[in-house]
Amino acid sequence: MDRMTLTGVHATARIVARDDGRGGTSLPVLEGEGPLALRRTRGSGAEARVMVVGAMSGPLGGDRFGIEARVEDGARLGVGSAAATIALPGQGKEEARYDVRLDVADGGELRWLPEQLISARGSDLRVSTRVDVGARGRLVLREEQVLGRVGEEPGRLGSRLTVRVAGRAVLDQELACGPGALGGWDGPAVLAGHRAVGQLVVVRPEFAVEPMAARMLGECAALTPLAGPAVLVSAVAGDALRLRRVLDEALAQLGG
């Protein structure tokens, strides 16, 4: 059960996906906690599907949320969320944390496609996503951040996304925005007034043999090969809808 402390809720959800030996994927571990409830939904083919269902909005200041997912050799897991996650201000001044740890074994496949993270006015959240993919593992990961609800100033949001393939970091990116972030975060080098920023990371062993060429996807999005068997689509947009359109289009071009 989740632990309520004076400063906030601590909750971690855990998923383990395993090859069930019959061409499908079983979920020997599927444990939600507190506000992070998990539901298994109808999958397709060999893929097991899980939905993260937020039982209450959050994280609030002082909360510590975590999700840990492990995909074993031969297993295929798809994870989505039922709604956007909204970071809100809490009672205290403490920041909230959201830590995602994903582990994809050699021969496993993970599609991590949650809804947006929205940084509401007055909130203070640090998100970290760390993914370890085995040498022949496959990954599709989407991360979208929206700065403020419609017409609202954003809160403070810091995020770090690290993707390792066979132990070697192929992507390590931090972004800090909102009040109190270091200068220039909304200026012409970083976001230039765009309120939605997103990344799509695709790891496939075949990229090691046949790397993709970099290309633009519209004015404010680019696909670029990383230093490893992976590509990144990086995009900024005026709002969440436009951002999603660009990333969906990119995902379709990458063959889903």
Binding site: R160, T162, A169, D172, Q173, E174, L175, A176, L182, P188, A189, V190, L191, A192, H194, V197, A214, R215, M216, E219, C220, A221, A222, L223, T224, S234, A235, V236
Partner: peptide, 21 residues
Amino acid sequence: VDALPAASAPLMEIGAEWHAG
């Protein structure tokens, strides 16, 4: 090396790919 900062600027990265083309 994980302790090294990784601060990124999305528009500089995207702009660099645009420029290279």
